[in-house]
């Protein structure tokens, strides 16, 4: 078996291509990170050298922490991302349960209606969303962002979760009904815990686009007190464009949280994509 596919020269070539591409993928991140720890002189003299004893400097980080409210931005990003995910998962799972569990008139139509948003980007409606937020007084609040991201995440969440809700055993639910559980209890106690892996997949899919979005923070919440980390670092870098130490440090500080999240969740993310949840 596999005799023809076991050619060592091929294997070496394959590793060569993969190593080359891995270098291309990681090189910019690497360069930014190492140079953020260097003195200004060393950044320009030897951009590719690792920070050494005489070139090590934290001056950039000092500027960033003094001038920009990065902890505030980080907190805003955290609040927006966590709240949006919570609402996407809760509302998405509830709607998915209703669509998967009950037969009622308009079920298919409702499913199609909710699926419309999978392919149509919410950004198309930005003009009217801004108008809506202005008229409800939600401009420059984190609530505006949370609402928009919840609406943006729901279509795919309902779609994926209803697939999984259909797989929850009917016998289990009927046993629960005989035991006198209400429909709400059946959802929270029986169905929700059983689709936990699907909930995690949906959460990981939504987390990164929400965290990284620049468009809606720029338009709906550009105030200093509501800036997210993405917008905050964009504005900060724009102001300090000639201070290379500060720019490199700000970039590194923006990379770090995402990288940590990725290390924690990459297995979940990759399993989610490869299990075909996005088909």
């Amino acid at each position: 078996m596999h005799k023809a596919r076991r050619n060592p020269a091929n294997l070496i070539a394959m590793h060569g291509i993969l190593i080359l591409y891995t270098c291309i993928a990681l090189f910019p991140v690497f360069v930014i990170l190492i140079n953020s720890f260097k003195t200004r002189k060393a950044i320009f003299r030897e951009p590719l050298a690792l920070p050494g004893a005489d070139s090590f400097s934290l001056i950039g980080y000092e500027t960033v922490l003094r001038q920009g409210d990065f902890f505030g931005y980080f907190q805003n990003s955290m609040i927006v991302t966590v709240c949006s995910l919570f609402f996407i998962l809760l509302f998405g799972a509830m709607a998915a349960f209703a669509l998967a569990e009950y037969r009622f008139r308009g079920n298919t139509l409702m499913g199609l209606y909710l699926a419309l948003g999978i392919m149509i980007p919410i950004r198309i409606g930005t003009v009217a969303i801004l108008e809506l937020m202005v008229s409800t007084g939600l401009v420059n609040t984190l609530m505006a962002l949370i609402l928009v991201y919840t609406a943006q995440g729901l279509p795919l969440a309902v779609f994926i979760l209803s697939e999984f809700m259909r797989g929850v055993s009917d016998d289990l639910k009927n046993a629960g009904r005989i035991d006198g559980l209400s429909e709400y209890m059946i959802f929270f106690r029986l169905a929700l815990p059983l689709v936990r892996p699907a909930l995690a997949t949906v959460a990981v899919f939504n987390m990164i686009p929400i965290w990284n979005d620049l468009w809606f923070p720029l338009i709906l919440a550009p105030a200093e007190s509501t800036k997210t980390l993405t917008l905050g670092s964009q504005v900060f870098i724009g102001q300090f464009v000639t201070d290379w130490n500060a720019v490199l440090s700000a970039l590194s500080m923006a990379i770090l949280p995402v990288l940590i999240l990725y290390v924690i969740f990459s297995r979940q993310l990759i399993r989610g994509i490869t299990s075909g949840a996005v088909k």
Partner: peptide, 21 residues
């Protein structure tokens, strides 16, 4: 009750602004 939150948020923030635009 199960459908309302998702449908309301989705309609108010996504579908309605889309057509309003």
């Amino acid at each position: 009750v199960f459908l309302a939150p998702a449908v309301l948020v989705y309609t108010a923030i996504m579908i309605f602004p889309l057509f309003n635009t």
